[in-house]
């Protein structure tokens, strides 16, 4: 049996989603209502309803091509939904850009790593701090006192954030030359630097060895506890998903086929069918 690192009681909401018991009564950090997108008639995601508690670790799983990354792209406004809405902390995000969604408190990592490879590790984190520690362009060009103060603050804060993953010694290394696992961790640090309420991780354990994955699980829980934020992750590594996720949502052909705790999901016949295929029964698209 898979090892559980968390043990949370999940409580159903009126909107059929479930949230951890400690988050009951608090406004969900993310809520989607009938979210859907069509690409030229093909419904990539359809009727996607979910609620994520403010400190929940939530998993989004499903077979390849189920639409998991599309959901992330809808949440972060890379795509504009054709139907439905996304509420972040109770606020409607219709018509917003990716940048505005980030300022609302939604940060993400990417399945195919998207770091600023020519810049140093520290500069990558500083870019994440862009909207947190500010000074104007002219103050930067003419090196006003605000520049020195803010840069010092940025330096301190980025080392603090890097130290979550013990990467503070790599601050001056070019991001593109880091090993794969470190690049994934750096992406998480960069996302965290934007001070999000909800952190979206797209396959954070891809390409990591079991030891690194174990460490990553500990770190995700540590991040949640320290920053008091919600984490939503897409992952194929079931050890990770079953180990740390409190609520899990299973997607197949763009539709939610199951929602529940890890135990429920593992026993759900629809999920087993989606992953392993059915014998003699036709799959409904």
């Amino acid at each position: 049996m898979k090892k559980r690192l968390v043990d949370t009681k999940m409580v159903p909401l009126p909107s059929v989603s479930i949230v951890p018991e400690r988050d009951v009564g608090k406004r969900p950090v993310l809520e989607t209502r009938h979210l859907g997108i069509e690409f030229g008639g093909l419904k990539a995601v359809e009727d996607f309803n979910i609620a994520v508690g403010p400190t929940e670790i939530c998993g989004l799983i499903g077979p390849n091509g189920a639409g998991k990354t599309t959901v992330f792209n809808l949440l972060t406004k890379v795509y504009q939904p054709t139907t439905g809405t996304v509420l972040i902390d109770g606020k409607d995000t219709s018509g917003m850009t990716t940048e505005q969604a980030n300022r609302m408190g939604i940060a993400r990592t990417f399945q195919n790593i998207r770091l600023f490879g020519n810049m140093t590790v520290e500069d990558n984190v500083r870019i994440g701090l862009h909207n947190q520690i500010r000074y104007g362009m002219l103050q930067g060009v003419f090196r006003a006192p605000a520049y020195w103060k803010a840069e010092k603050q940025m330096h301190k804060r980025s080392l603090e954030l890097l130290s979550i993953f013990g990467m503070q010694d790599m601050a001056d290394v070019k991001a593109g030359s880091l090993p794969y696992g470190a690049q994934r961790r750096l992406e998480i640090v960069r996302a965290l630097a934007t001070n999000p309420k909800l952190l979206l991780l797209d396959e954070p354990a891809a390409g990591m060895n079991p030891h690194e994955t174990e460490e990553l699980m500990q770190n995700i829980i540590k991040i949640r506890d320290e920053f008091q934020i919600a984490v939503m992750l897409i992952e194929h590594d079931m050890n990770l998903v079953m180990g740390i996720c409190e609520g899990i949502c299973v997607l197949n052909y763009g539709r939610i086929i199951a929602k529940g705790t890890p135990e429920e999901i593992q026993q759900n016949p629809a999920v087993i069918e989606a992953y392993l295929g059915s014998q003699g029964r036709e799959e409904n698209a």
Binding site: T76, V78, T98, N102, F110, R114, H130, A193, T194
Partner: peptide
């Protein structure tokens, strides 16, 4: 420079 290197990532960090 971040926007030059990776527009989507730059947007995603605000």
């Amino acid at each position: 420079m971040a926007i030059r290197d990776n527009r989507i990532a730059a947007e995603s960090v605000g």
